[in-house]
Structures are given as C-alpha cells and as structure tokens.
Write a protein that binds this DNA or RNA. Structure first.
Length: 420
RNA sequence: GUGAGCGUAGCUCAGCUGGUGGUAGCACCGGGUUGUGGCCUCGGAGGUCGUGGGUUCAAGUCCCAUCGCUCACCCCA
C-alpha cells in the first residue's frame, strides 16, 4: 500500500508555491503599511485556551478540534486565541497602548473536506488590540479590502453589529421566544438551531425559514445605544474612505468571543464556501482569558481560498526567470571547468546551474529552457582550447562569443555583469 | 456525523449491449538539426484498470464488500 497524505491535508507543490509566496508577500507588505508587526506563535496550545475563547458550545470546539486528550493539548483551529494568550503572557500592552499584529500559518479543523475547505488550512490573521475607537474598525476593514484589491480579487463586503455582552443576551432570549412561536414552520436544522445557535436561523438558506426570519426581531434594532452609535461611526468612516459595503443584519459568527462590529469578504466563486475573509470585534476576550480589560478587533483570511480565487479570476502572477545562467558543458574538460565556474557564480549570488550527465547540447538547451534561464553559456572542449565560449540570450536568441579565461574569477565577474 | 458521485499511464481522460488495455492529449527520453531551447515532425519508455471476492467460457466493463478521493449538507477562513 502506497502511503499518501491524509484526507484534508494537502501538499503545495513548487509550481503553486509561487502563487502562495505572491499572496504572502503582498499581505506582509499591506499589513506593514498599516503598522502591523508579525507575531509567530505555536501550533499546539492547551485545549482550555480554545474552549474558553471560542466557546464550549460552538461547533469548532465541540466536534472540529484535533485534540490530544491525555495531554490536554489541541492543534490550533484559529489564531486569535493563541495571539491573545501570547499578548497576555508577555504583557505586550505595557510596551504599546495599541498593539497591531499579524500572523500567517496553518490551522487545523476536523471537518469533512470540500472545495475551499481543508483540515489543515492556512490563514492570514490580523489583530488590533487596545482601542474601542470605531475608526479602528474601519481602518482594519480598509486594510482587508486593500489587500484584496491589490491581489486583484473581487469580493463583496458585508457588515453587521451583533451587539455587546449587555444587549446581546436579552436579544437572544427574545429571538428564541419568537422562534419557538414559529417552531412548527422551521426546517429540521433550524428547530435544532433555535437552541444551539438561534442567530444562525436568520442565515438559513431555506425559503420558508427566510420568510420567518423577515419577521424576526432585528438585532440591529435591538442593540443598545452604545453599540448603535459605535456601528454608525464605523459606517461613517467607511463612507469617508469610499469603501462600499452592504448591511447584513442576518450575519452571525461561529465563535462566541465576537462583539459589536462583524464583517465578511464574500464571493460566489468558491463553490459552497462564500467567505474569503471574516472578522470582528472581541472586546471581552482578553479579560476573559485572565488578561487586562482591553478590547480588540481582527480578521482572518483563508489562504487556500485566496489562491483558488487568484487562479479562477485569472490573476496568477506571471513568473520571472528562475535561473540567471545555465552552463551547457560538452566534454569532460569543459564539465570540470563549468563546475568551478558555477560554484564561483553562485558565491557571487548568481543563480546558476549545469547538467552533469553529459547529455547532448540539445538536451541541455531543453533543460536550460525548463529552468527558465535568462542566459546559457555553451562551452565545449574546443571552446576551452580556443578560449572562446558562446553566450546565448534565451529570450532574444542572440548569441555572442565570450572570451574564456583560465582565471575563472575574472570570467565569473564578467558573466555576473552580463547576467545582471 | 449525513448524502451523492468518481477510482484506467506522473497528470487530464477515451474504452459502446462483457470478447486482446488507448496511434489519445500534456509531461518525460531520443532522433529529424553530425554542437543550439520554445514551434513542428518521427520514434521510445511508461499500467497489479484502487483492493478483495463473486457471476461467466471470458470482467476495465456486471454484482457484493472494502479502501481512497471529490462534491454537497452541517459548520466555517
């Protein structure tokens, strides 16, 4: 039996890594533009951390975590909890009143894989900690939008406010009562959701449930004045920046720690998955984890989803040459000569390669082409005797003789100049 | 956890009502070009038809089981 990767865990092969590096590079660039600094945290944490932050009754905690029960450890299903743990553990708030952080890396959830969803997946995660200012919310959203824009990915932005610890519980109670009054008309899933996650009923795709949802009390109208004011200011900021969005009063969150502002970057191009990125405020989380009473807001973007969209929307970055110079050696002497030359070129930072199998020139040219080499230097034993090689520009097909030198240091300098 | 679909070359796939595995495309190797890549052309190599059992004179094809993958539900980035 051949050993293969386990279900939901994917290899990212070299040709695709270029795409991933493109995404990462652009993300770091944009995040740094907003003053975010990278933080790297462990993949394994105490199970308790996720239970306390994400919420005991959430799907993620109840059935999706990779946990080692005997050790009490869990592979992180998301990044925010770990970042907050690190934030508290190292007292980062003392250094700077507002901390702006980002993290990039793999997350793990034991769900059934499907398009745009894997068991090991990767997220770009951002957090701004220490401010309740609604302009911070808008700034963070604008950063996500800017990244998507610059990647050339088209999404729609939806925002909502899900209230705070003061106003959400009463609303939730009101909603449950309403749903109970219409219980018989709800679909089977929603009958269950009424008690597990009543807000999710508002988001049900079934038409009958949608009709009922229209009559349900609206969270946006029920939230407290403070939350309303905050949300209005977020919208005013987005308006000033010219960022287009739609209000979605049915948008809810799967993790318990979210408060007030929530938002999602959405697409129709990912099969059943619609969210490319999502986030929101989590004002009680840090305190709940035993840290100072500091607010925060963040978002995560799914890198697999970004990569899929880049491919689908035909925005694959065109790749440059991946090799500066390929040395085609013909004959034993020239092979040894080229070996020395390749070594010296590489020490100068030039990307250089050659073939040792003594294949035909045609075969070696093919190889140079596969390497996407900018130049090829052809050196046979004859050339070595006459001290004149041939250098070929692979894109223009121009060839020129080049004086060879027994002093390969000199020659490698000359070649380095040509190739640069 | 539930449902549906699919497993044939490294990849993408033909293979009809069972009757000798495809000159298939991409990729790979070599020749045409006696020392020049991409395009063209000719040739070559590459397979336990996922696995196990059953039906049959005969199974890639039909039946059963099993493993794997994919998509969808739930839920989520």
């Amino acid at each position: 039996m051949k050993i293969q990767a386990i279900n939901g865990f994917k290899d990212i092969l070299p040709e695709n890594v270029l795409l991933w590096q493109h995404i990462e590079k652009k993300a770091r660039e944009v995040f740094q533009r907003f003053g975010l600094r990278e933080i790297r945290i462990p993949i394994l944490e105490k199970t308790e951390l996720f239970v306390r932050s994400i919420g005991e009754a959430t799907d993620v905690v109840e059935k999706e975590m990779y946990t080692f029960p005997e050790a009490g450890l869990t592979m992180r299903p998301e990044a925010t909890a770990g970042i907050m743990r690190a934030f508290i553990e190292h007292g980062l708030h003392v250094q700077q009143p507002i901390q702006r952080l980002y993290a990039i890396g793999p997350m793990f959830r034991h769900e059934r894989p499907q398009k745009g969803r894997q068991r090991q997946f990767h997220q770009l995660d951002t957090e701004i900690i220490g401010s309740v200012d609604p302009q911070i919310d808008a700034e963070l959203i604008s950063m996500g939008q800017m990244l998507l824009d610059e990647l050339g990915i088209t999404t729609s932005l939806e925002i909502n406010s899900i209230g705070c610890s003061q106003c959400r519980p009463p609303y939730r109670q009101k909603l449950v009562s309403f749903l109970e009054s219409r219980h018989d008309d709800l679909c089977e899933d929603c009958k269950r959701r009424t008690y597990t996650n009543p807000l999710r009923v508002l988001d049900c795709k079934k038409s009958t449930c949608r009709e009922i949802a229209k009559d349900a009390p609206s969270l946006l109208e029920e939230v407290c004045d403070n939350c309303k004011g905050h949300f209005n200011q977020v919208q005013a900021s987005l308006d000033r920046m010219g960022i287009t969005y739609t209000l979605n009063r049915f948008m809810v969150r799967g993790l318990d720690y979210y408060t007030q502002t929530t938002f999602e970057f959405l697409t129709d191009d990912l099969g059943a998955q619609s969210a490319v990125g999502a986030g929101g405020r989590y004002d009680g989380l840090i305190e709940q984890l035993g840290g100072p009473a500091l607010p925060g807001i963040g978002f995560a973007m799914g890198m697999e989803r970004l990569a899929l969209l880049l491919e689908q929307q035909n925005n694959r970055p065109h790749m440059d040459s991946e090799m500066d110079l390929f040395l085609a050696a013909l004959g034993p002497q020239s092979m040894d000569y080229c070996e020395t030359l390749v070594h010296k070129l590489r020490k100068k930072g030039i990307r250089a390669a050659m073939d040792y199998s003594g294949r035909s020139l045609k075969a070696q040219m093919k190889q140079a082409n596969r390497f996407k080499a900018s130049f090829t230097l052809i050196i046979g034993d004859n050339e070595l005797l006459e001290q004149t090689g041939i250098i070929r520009n692979m894109s223009t097909q121009e060839q020129q003789p080049i004086g060879l030198d027994t002093n390969t240091d000199q020659l490698s300098n000359v070649l380095a100049e040509i190739v640069r």
